[in-house]
Amino acid sequence: MFPESLIELTALICETADRELPSRFGCHSGSRKADGSLVTEADIVVQAALFDALKQRWPDTDVLGEEMDESAQQRAMHHSDTGLWVLDPLDGTTNFSNGVPYYAVSAALLRNGVIEQGVVYDPNRKECFAAARKQGAWLNGERLQHGCSAPPLAQGVALIDLKRLPKDLACRLASNPPYKSQRSFGAVALDWAWLAAGRFQVYLHGRQKLWDYAAGCLILEEAGGCAVTLEGKPVFAPTLQPRSAAAALDPAAFQQWIDWLGITRG
C-alpha cells in the first residue's frame, strides 16, 4: 500500500511542477553558475515555490536546494538531524531549456544521516516515482518490484555519463564496452528512477551532487537495486561533496558490472 506519508509530498511536487514548468519549456534564457552549469528562470521559480510549500506544510523541517548559494547549503546541512528537504527543482536543465523532454523535479527527506523519503517526478510523462525507507518504491502508486532476471551484461543496455568519469575508465568503456548498447540522457535523478523501473540494466556516473541522487538512490534501493561508488562505498553520504555511482537493479547484473569495473565493495 502506498504510504500516507508520501501522499502529500507527491501531490505537492507534482502540482508545483505541472503549474510552473510547461509554459517555460524550451526557453533558452538563463545564466551560468560558477561551475559552468546552466540555471534558468524555471529553476529559480520552482525552487521558490517548493520552498514556500514545504515550509508551510512542514515548518520545522529545513530546506536545501540546488540553486541556493553554497554557504546557505552548508548551513542547511547542519540541520539534517532535525530533518532536511533536499531539492533539485529542475533536474536536466540543459535538456529543458533546449526542448528535450527528459527532465524532472526531485525531493528527498534527509534525517540523522539517512534518506527517509524520495520523490522524482517527470512532468512530460506524468510519471511520479516515490519511495519510503523500508516500505518500498512506487511509480504512480504501483509498487516497483524487481522481478524478471536481467540479461547478461554483454546483452544489456547501460546508461553511462562518460564526461565525468576518470579518463582511463572512459576510454576503456569507449574502446571495449562490456554491454550491448549505451545511452546518456542528461538528468541524474530521472536516470536513477528509470533504472529502478528496469528500463536499462546498468548505470555509471562519475560525479553527482546530493540533490541529484538523494531521491533516486532511495527509489532504486527500495525497488531492490544495488549501488556503490567507484571506491566501493555506499553512494549516499550526508555531504555536499560529489559522489560517483555504479548501479544496477538486478543483483547478478550488478555483480557482473562491478567485477568488470574492478570495484571491491568496502
Rank of each mutant, 00 (worst) to 15 (best):
residue 52 D to K: 08
residue 52 D to G: 01
residue 54 L to M: 06
residue 54 L to D: 00
residue 56 Q to L: 03
residue 57 R to L: 13
residue 61 T to V: 15
residue 61 T to N: 06
residue 62 D to Q: 06
residue 64 L to V: 02
residue 64 L to W: 03
residue 66 E to G: 06
residue 67 E to A: 13
residue 68 M to F: 13
residue 69 D to H: 13
residue 71 S to Y: 03
residue 71 S to K: 10
residue 72 A to I: 10
residue 73 Q to H: 09
residue 73 Q to Y: 08
residue 78 H to L: 12
residue 78 H to E: 14
residue 79 H to R: 14
residue 80 S to V: 08
residue 81 D to S: 11
residue 82 T to V: 11
residue 83 G to M: 04
residue 84 L to T: 11
residue 84 L to K: 13
residue 85 W to A: 03
residue 85 W to L: 10
residue 85 W to V: 08
residue 85 W to M: 04
residue 85 W to E: 03
residue 86 V to P: 08
residue 91 D to Q: 08
residue 91 D to V: 06
residue 96 F to G: 01
residue 96 F to E: 01
residue 96 F to M: 00
residue 97 S to L: 12
residue 97 S to H: 03
residue 98 N to H: 12
residue 99 G to A: 11
residue 100 V to A: 07
residue 100 V to C: 11
residue 101 P to R: 09
residue 101 P to S: 07
residue 102 Y to D: 08
residue 102 Y to S: 09
residue 103 Y to F: 15
residue 103 Y to E: 05
residue 103 Y to G: 05
residue 104 A to M: 00
residue 107 A to W: 13
residue 108 A to L: 12
residue 109 L to C: 12
residue 110 L to I: 10
residue 110 L to D: 13
residue 113 G to V: 15
residue 114 V to W: 00
residue 115 I to Y: 02
residue 116 E to P: 04
residue 118 G to T: 05
residue 121 Y to T: 08
residue 122 D to W: 00
residue 124 N to I: 05
residue 124 N to Y: 01
residue 125 R to V: 00
residue 126 K to C: 10
residue 127 E to H: 14
residue 129 F to I: 05
residue 130 A to S: 15
residue 130 A to K: 08
residue 132 A to Y: 00
residue 133 R to I: 08
residue 133 R to H: 03
residue 133 R to E: 02
residue 134 K to Q: 15
residue 135 Q to K: 15
residue 135 Q to Y: 05
residue 136 G to Q: 07
residue 136 G to E: 09
residue 138 W to Y: 15
residue 139 L to G: 04
residue 139 L to Q: 05
residue 141 G to Q: 11
residue 142 E to A: 10
residue 142 E to N: 06
residue 143 R to M: 05
residue 144 L to G: 04
residue 144 L to A: 10
residue 144 L to H: 07
residue 146 H to L: 08
residue 146 H to I: 05
residue 146 H to M: 06
residue 148 C to P: 00
residue 150 A to G: 10
residue 151 P to Q: 09
residue 152 P to W: 03
residue 154 A to R: 14
residue 155 Q to I: 02
residue 159 L to E: 10
residue 161 D to N: 15
residue 163 K to A: 04
residue 163 K to E: 02
residue 164 R to T: 15
residue 164 R to M: 11
residue 165 L to H: 03
residue 165 L to W: 00
residue 165 L to C: 11
residue 165 L to D: 03
residue 166 P to F: 06
residue 168 D to N: 12
residue 168 D to A: 13
residue 169 L to M: 12
residue 171 C to S: 11
residue 171 C to V: 00
residue 171 C to Y: 00
residue 173 L to Q: 06
residue 174 A to S: 12
residue 176 N to C: 07
residue 176 N to S: 12
residue 179 Y to S: 05
residue 180 K to M: 14
residue 181 S to D: 14
residue 185 F to T: 01
residue 185 F to A: 04
residue 186 G to V: 05
residue 188 V to Y: 02
residue 189 A to N: 03
residue 190 L to Q: 08
residue 190 L to H: 07
residue 191 D to F: 01
residue 191 D to L: 06
residue 192 W to S: 11
residue 193 A to V: 08
residue 194 W to V: 00
residue 196 A to L: 04
residue 196 A to D: 01
